[in-house]
């Protein structure tokens, strides 16, 4: 999936099916398709967990991570990846009081998660174990037509230099 200025929207449909699996204590881990931060740009993907009700410290939380992937521009890009990543779960309500749930994180170039991937997807990701609690999802229209929208907005050091 290509980008419009470094923003990617991941549509997660049949979200109630994932919640049912979690309630039945079945692990829920899904990955987004790979997407590029630009042309040229880094190839990334997202990983989402719905933590089980009996998980230590993070029970019933949605975890959200970013992984680097092998991309077609890798040999022309500076490594490690440096930049700012904003992760959001979008409030799908109409009206002015719409409020996304979001976190902004700075890439840490010393971490393996931001080194150039040597296999299809870097096994190391970076993000939040406790991104949002399932109860918080109910407080706004984060789920509409049984679909959750996760947005990833990437501002790479590359963009800043160019």
């Amino acid at each position: 999936a290509q980008q419009c200025n470094g923003i990617y929207i991941w549509k997660i449909e049949n979200f109630s099916g994932l919640q049912r699996a979690q309630e039945e204590e079945r692990p829920v881990v899904i990955h987004s398709p790979g997407f590029y931060t630009g042309k040229p740009g880094y190839k990334l993907c997202l990983r989402l967990h719905i933590q089980l009700p009996n998980a230590q410290r993070c029970a019933n939380f949605i975890s959200l991570f970013v992984h680097t992937m092998q991309g077609e521009y890798d040999s022309h890009l500076p490594w490690p990846f440096q930049g700012t990543i904003r992760l959001s779960i979008l409030d799908q309500s109409e009206g002015p009081e719409r409020q996304n749930h979001e976190e902004v994180m700075e890439a840490k170039p010393e971490l393996l998660a931001f080194q150039r991937p040597t296999i299809h997807r870097n096994p190391k990701g970076f993000g939040y174990v406790t991104f949002i609690h399932l109860q918080t999802l109910k407080q706004r229209t984060f789920i509409k037509d049984d679909t959750l929208l996760v947005r990833c907005e990437v501002q790479t050091r590359l963009d800043l230099n160019s």
């Binding site: 881990v29 990983r47 975890s63 991570f65 992984h67 976190e103 994180m105 840490k108 971490l111 393996l112 998660a113 096994p123 190391k124 990701g125 970076f126 993000g127 939040y128 174990v129 406790t130 991104f131």
Partner: peptide, 12 residues
């Protein structure tokens, strides 16, 4: 307090 991002390993 806002959550702190961490590195997390996952392999299929």
């Amino acid at each position: 307090f806002p959550p702190v991002p961490t590195e997390d390993e996952y392999m299929d």
